[in-house]
C-alpha cells in the first residue's frame, strides 16, 4: 500500500537553541504555533525541562506524550563540547501503525550498545526482545552506525543481513530504518534508530550527506537515501551535491546547526520531485566529530 503524506508518523520538528542560559524554541516545522497547539496537552513545560536536561546531559531522550498520542524525540547537537541546538521531533503514536524509536547507548561494564530507551507502536515480540539484546561495534544497525560514525539508511529490514533482528522485523512488518549517531567531541553518546513499516512510515525520506572533494571545492554530497512512496523525489535525488551554505541542507553543514523547513507547497525543500510527491517538510541535522561536520542527516516528510 503506498504511503501518503497524511499517514506519515512525523508530526513536526523544532529546533531549540541556548539563549542567555536557557533553551528557547527557535524554529519549527510546521509552525511553532501549530505545534504548540498540538502539544499543549502534551505538557510543554515538561518538554522544556526535557530539552534542558538533554542539553545538560548531552544525551538524546524520548518522551511519550500520552495526552497527545505522540512521542517526542529530543536530540542534542554538540559542537566542540557545547550543545549548540536541540532538535525535537514529534511522532504520532496513534492508530494501527508499526514503528519503533530506539535509543542505544553504552552501559558500565559492557562493551556493546544496549537499549537505553524505546517507544514501540504495534510491535509484539520485537519490542519484548529488544531490551535484552545488545550490539557490539560493527554489528547490527546500531553497531554499524557506531563503527562508521555517520547516519545509516537501511531498507528491507526483514531480509537485510545487516539488520540482526531481521526475523522480527519481517514478521512484524518493519521495513525501513534510519540510524543517527549522537557524538560529543570524539565520544559516541548514543545511537537513535527510527524503524517503521512502509505503509505508515515515520518519514517519507531519509538521507545521509557527506562532505566530499569535488574538483577544487568541498561540497556536500548525498551518499545514501531511502524514499518511501516518493518516486519523483527518489529519481531526482540520485546524484546530488551542494556547496556549503546552499539550500537548507548546505546551511546545516555550514552553520553546524540543525535546520527545519516547511511550507504547504514543498518549495522550501528545494528538491525536484518533493512537490510532486507531496512532501512539505524536512529537518537536517549535522553530525559533528571534533572540529568537523562529518555528515548531515536529512529527514523529509
Amino acid at each position: 500500500m503506498p504511503a501518503h503524506a497524511d499517514n506519515t508518523l512525523v508530526i513536526g520538528a523544532e529546533v531549540w537553541s541556548p539563549v542567555d542560559g536557557a533553551m528557547v524554541r527557535m524554529a519549527a516545522a510546521p509552525s511553532i504555533g501549530d505545534l504548540q497547539d498540538r502539544f499543549r496537552a502534551g505538557q510543554p513545560e515538561g518538554l522544556s525541562v526535557l530539552v534542558e536536561n538533554s542539553a545538560a546531559d548531552k544525551l538524546p531522550t524520548l518522551l511519550k506524550l500520552d495526552d497527545a498520542d505522540a512521542i517526542a524525540w529530543v536530540w542534542p547537537v554538540i559542537d566542540r563540547d557545547q550543545v549548540n541546538s536541540v532538535v525535537v521531533m514529534y511522532f504520532s503514536n496513534a492508530g494501527d501503525v508499526t514503528a519503533a524509536v530506539e535509543l542505544w547507548s553504552g552501559r558500565p561494564g559492557r562493551s556493546e550498545l544496549c537499549l537505553a530507551d524505546a517507544c514501540y507502536t504495534g510491535l509484539g515480540r520485537f519490542a519484548k526482545l529488544s531490551p535484552h539484546i545488545s550490539f557490539p561495534k560493527g554489528s547490527g544497525l546500531p553497531g554499524l552506525t557506531w563503527e562508521t560514525n555517520i547516519p545509516q539508511v537501511l531498507e528491507g529490514l526483514g531480509t537485510s543481513p545487516t539488520f540482526m533482528r531481521a526475523t522480527g522485523a519481517e514478521s512484524e512488518g518493519l521495513g525501513v530504518g534510519f540510524a543517527l549517531p549522537c557524538i560529543a567531541g570524539s565520544s559516541l553518546q548514543a545511537v537513535t534508530l527510527l524503524l517503521s513499516g512502509t505503509a505508515s512510515p515515520i518519514a517519507r525520506a531519509y538521507e545521509t550527506w557527506l562532505p566530499q572533494q569535488r574538483g577544487d571545492s568541498l561540497r556536500l554530497a548525498r551518499i545514501d537515501g531511502a524514499y518511501i512512496a516518493s518516486p519523483a523525489l527518489e529519481k531526482a535525488s540520485t546524484q546530488l551535491d551542494v556547496p556549503a551554505g546552499d539550500t537548507w541542507i548546505g546551511r546545516a553543514w555550514a552553520t553546524r546547526k540543525p535546520e527545519v523547513v516547511c511550507d504547504s507547497t514543498g518549495q522550501s525543500l528545494e528538491r525536484k520531485g518533493a512537490v510532486e510527491d507531496g512532501l512539505t517538510s524536512g529537518t537536517a541535522i549535522p553530525i559533528i566529530i571534533l572540529d568537523d561536520v562529518a555528515a548531515v542527516a536529512v529527514i523529509m516528510w
Binding site: G106, R107, S111, L113, K137, I183, S186, S187, Q189
Partner: peptide
C-alpha cells in the same frame, strides 16, 4: 569513537 558508558537503564 569512544563509547560513553551511560548509566541509563
Amino acid at each position: 569513537l569512544m563509547l560513553v558508558q551511560s548509566p541509563a537503564e
